[in-house]
Design a protein around this nucleic acid. Structure first.
Lengths: 336, 336
DNA sequence: TTGAAAGCGCTACCAG
DNA sequence: CTGGTAGCGCTTTCAA
């Protein structure tokens, strides 16, 4: 900046005024032109960090995540946060903690020491996480997770798994299915119980008697979907199977094929997650529900960039979108 | 820092010396203790950005990527870069450009303006990308991509797709298969041609006549794998099918099941990518090759953090690891 | 309308 | 061994 000033024959603060295009101080058009020319000639670019330091502000937000690498869809969250940040002229430092609380503390410390404007915690699977107390002085928003202890969060953003579970079940019941199997995922997880509640309520809506449905809890794996499906069909013959996630649905699809049943002609099938490179590529393409990672991330980013401060309000629920593809068909009247 | 100094009754530079634990200047143990106590009492943490500014260095590296959200494995790269950075006490700002060159320029500019120590370009699919000229003054390393124009790169890190393609083919030929089908992915892509070269060389190694193998080019999609498999089996009966990636292998598996062929009893099957939540979860679990995203990212991070400067050397090839699971079996002697 | 001086939080280099 | 002073690149008074 002093180089530019020297070349333009003005003082250094003057350069600051013109490059920042400040309306409140007026500088002569001629001077301004000289400064601009000099800046261009020297290929001058202001130093953002120095600006931040001087203005005692920060234009970076920190995102701490566990397992950006371990789940295929986590990238969506980061992308969403980043898009919101970009809109506000901020930038994201992301650190991944290997799910180790000490690591997490270290990560947050390094962020706080850099004076980030806000911190967003992002988790691939919805669950409580222990926030670092180092962060308590900084605006903090949680997306797809919530603080496991008392903590002054600015916001917590959660997917509406209940609504998603209900919507996908409705899509099945609405096509006349009564005898349906519900293959749930890991029973302890919050998402699982929410999805399950959605199923139960949808069944009730359509006047389906609980005795007609069969429910089994498993794991969120392809194997689990495969095994559960074979078990269920050994006992009965549901016309639809709803799975806790897409991988279980893949397992169910494989099992159904081995059982000689066509999907969706013989039995309808649904998943959950809309896992990229999977759900949309199965044969038949899977009807499922998409988790709103991008939206949640974007929302989290917006809040983080707004500097709203701790609110202590209710979690903000972001809707899950039903993705109807080809794996659900109307029940055959003979099966009804 | 001045607060700490005041509380400890020393000068501010003295605080700097003790909190930075500098051996070259000696401070009296008693003074040191007083400073430490004061720092603790005030919960003092040095400001990294201010340190960076004063020392005219930077402890952040920028990573620009296109599509961290679009491919499931991209996160691995970021994680690798970050692990290397962490080891060196640095931190990563990551920006995603929606594959838009203007966006990419803007991203790089914002990074450069922040004075990042280095920039690493990371791409989910291996290919040339246009680097921003704004970056040319900063150390730049390319991982899973290379500059499409003359550019002073510090390094380019590439997966050894040739070796991967060769290894997986070897695993098949070594089990006695002669009549094998090779279902390639998008023919224009660098990775595809490398994998194809590997296949051809492996076939030659095992003395397999080109006329015995059947090769078809498709797309990297499940549908393509499905369709190609049906086409191939309409004409002939290979004992093994090698696919360009895991999704094609999934399509092939589905087609084979529809054709009444068991994998691997009747036909062996391989993929490529070791796609998480897919390859390892199919039935049978897929033999495939893992792309070394984590390693490539780590290596890129190491170089970026080392401040080596432009080298202009050859690309650094990182080996692809063959992952042998259950989808390949020895050819039946009757088929031989 | 412009320039001189101060200071963001820190480290480097002197003198004492 | 410690304190004063200068300065990283910038913005913000305030006086001229």
């Amino acid at each position: 900046m002093v180089d530019v000033a020297r070349l333009a024959g003005v003082s250094q603060p003057t350069v600051s005024f013109v490059v920042n295009d400040r309306r409140d101080v007026s500088v002569a058009p001629e001077t301004r032109r000289r400064v601009l020319d000099a800046a261009r000639a020297l290929d001058y670019r202001p130093n953002r960090s120095a600006q931040d330091l001087r203005m005692s502000r920060s234009t970076v937000i920190g995102v701490v995540t566990n397992g950006i690498a371990s789940l295929p869809f986590a990238g969506q969250t980061i992308l969403g946060i980043q898009r919101a940040a970009k809109k506000a002229g901020l930038v994201c430092i992301v650190v991944d903690t290997a799910d180790d609380p000490d690591d997490s503390d270290a990560a947050v410390t390094s962020l706080v020491d850099r004076g980030v404007a806000a911190i967003v915690y992002a988790s691939p699977s919805t669950r409580p996480i222990r926030p670092s107390m180092f962060a308590s002085a900084t605006d903090t928003v949680f997306t797809n997770c919530w603080p496991s202890t008392e903590f002054p969060a600015s916001a917590v953003i959660l997917p509406d798994e209940y609504q998603g579970g209900r919507d996908v079940a409705r899509a099945v019941f609405a096509r006349g299915h009564r005898h349906v199997a519900y293959l749930g995922g890991t029973a302890q997880e919050w998402a699982s119980v929410e999805r399950g509640r959605g199923f139960v309520d949808a069944a009730a809506e359509y006047g389906v008697d609980p005795s007609e449905t069969t429910t089994a809890d498993g794991l969120y794996t392809t194997d689990s979907g495969y095994d559960l499906t074979r078990e269920v069909f050994a006992q009965s013959s549901p016309t639809a199977v709803l799975c806790g996630n897409d991988r279980m649905a893949l397992g169910a699809l494989l099992a159904l094929r081995d059982l000689g049943r066509q999907v969706p002609a013989d039995v309808s099938l649904t998943g959950y997650d809309d896992q990229e490179f999977l759900a949309g590529e199965l044969r038949p393409r899977l009807t499922t529900v998409a988790l709103p990672f991008l939206e949640m991330g974007y929302r989290a980013g917006e809040i983080a960039c707004s500097g709203a401060g701790a609110t202590g309000g209710e979690p903000e629920m972001v809707p899950c979108r039903l993705v109807e593809r080809e794996s659900v068909a109307a029940v055959r009247t003979t099966d009804r």
